[in-house]
Each structure stands twice: as C-alpha cells, then as structure tokens.
Amino acid sequence: MRPEHPPEFPLAVHDLTVAYHRKPVLWDVDLNIPEGSLSGIVGPNGAGKSTLLKACLDLIPTTSGEALIYGKPYPKQRDLIAYVPQRESVDWDFPVTALDVVTMGTYRKLGWFKRISSAQKKRAQEALDQVGIGHLAQRQISHLSGGQQQRVFLARALVQDAQIYFMDEPFAAVDAATEQAIIQLLKDLNAQGKTVLCVHHDLATVSRYFDHLVLLNMRVVASGPTSETFTRENLQKTYGGKLNLLEDVAQVLKNIGRS
C-alpha cells in the first residue's frame, strides 16, 4: 500500500490541529502540495490560512499532527524553504536599509559570529535588482511604499535560493504594478521547478494565478488542481454559513479553558 503522504511531496500535512488558548483554529488538516506547483491557500478571514503556514514552519505549537517537507520534519529541511511573512509582521521604522534586510536572508549560510562581507551584499543587491528595486538598495525601509516593502521581503526570500517558497499574503495592499511583478516572479520560480505556496485573499485572480488550490476554513474544504477545485459549490462550502457548528464548538472549548 502506498503511504498516505509519500516523501515526493514538498509539503505533506497530516492530521494537523492547532489551537490558540485552547480555541482550535485548524482542525485535522490533511493535504499534499505537489512538487512544482504554484499553489494558493484561499479562505475567509480567520480561516487559519496564516496559521497553517506558521504551524508548518514550527513557528507556533501544534496540538496534534505533523507537517513533512519532502518526507522529513521541517527542522531537518530548513535550507529548502524560504518564508515571506506578512508585511505588517515587522516594524518598518527599524533603522536598516532595504539592502540590510535582504542581506538577512544570507545569515543562515554565513553562520554564527561571522561578519557580513561584500559577497553577501552583492548577492542581496542582485536579488533587489531581480525584484525591480535595485535603485532603492540604500533607502531606509520606512521610506519605501507598501509594494516596495513587499518586494524587499521577496528579495530576502530569493537570496536563500530555496526549493519551496511559503508566502503569506504577498499581494495584500500592494499596487497593481507590484502585483504584476510579483506574480511574474512567482511564475519564473515555478518555471525553474520550484514549488510556491501562497496565502491569497482575492478570489477574482485565483484561477489566473494558481494551478493548485487549497480551500481552507478551519479544515480543508477542498484541495486539488484549480480547474477542478475552484467551483461554486466548494466556494459556498468554504465561505458559506455551514460551519457555524464548528465555530460554536470552538467557543465552548475556549470557555472550558477559561473557567
């Protein structure tokens, strides 16, 4: 019998449950992301999309289940993954330049105590050029527009030279030109055989951007090729009011924790 989550999948999630303060935000998530896919994770607010990424990256504790990267737990596969967090997750008033932030993507390879040299800076500059803002390398990050800040984060992921890219809402609140530049970049990465997994919120662009789709609302509603998964019925299941019961039970569990 074939295993349920064979190791050829860049990301295989098995029975993953995550709770914040005992309130479950993800229930028994089970999915496989195919290699070389450009995958989108779509669902309503509070569906646990970012939580799923963070749980796969060991950033938050899980209640049960596991996420495997090519068949192995994440701590053994760190070099394979580049993570682009939500733009609001950091303080953009921090006293560093765009180039400094991108250089941070090289720290892991550089190792403890080593000083940053011109080799790392050169690599970072190339990544900034690649995302089209090479001329802003020396600009302090608070003086960048939202779209430019997002590109800085992308460049930081690019210098890691990973196989799998985890992106948390890269298109949130960016200008149209940046959106085009980002999707082009993702498609280029995809063409090189890399796997891209994107939390996304705009249903209108789903079928144009992604070839594989995960519909999520606390659990996986549907997962598969976009052409088959992106249906009216599945969307209704994801966004419709049929999950009220699940939400109610979650609230009960939370209250038990309180009393």
Partner: peptide, 10 residues
C-alpha cells in the same frame, strides 16, 4: 527586526 523569520532560519 524579525524574530519569526530568524526562527524559520534556524
């Protein structure tokens, strides 16, 4: 600057 990112980088 970004402790979550640092953490994913090991």
């Amino acid at each position: 600057f970004d402790s979550h990112f640092a953490s994913t980088q090991g």
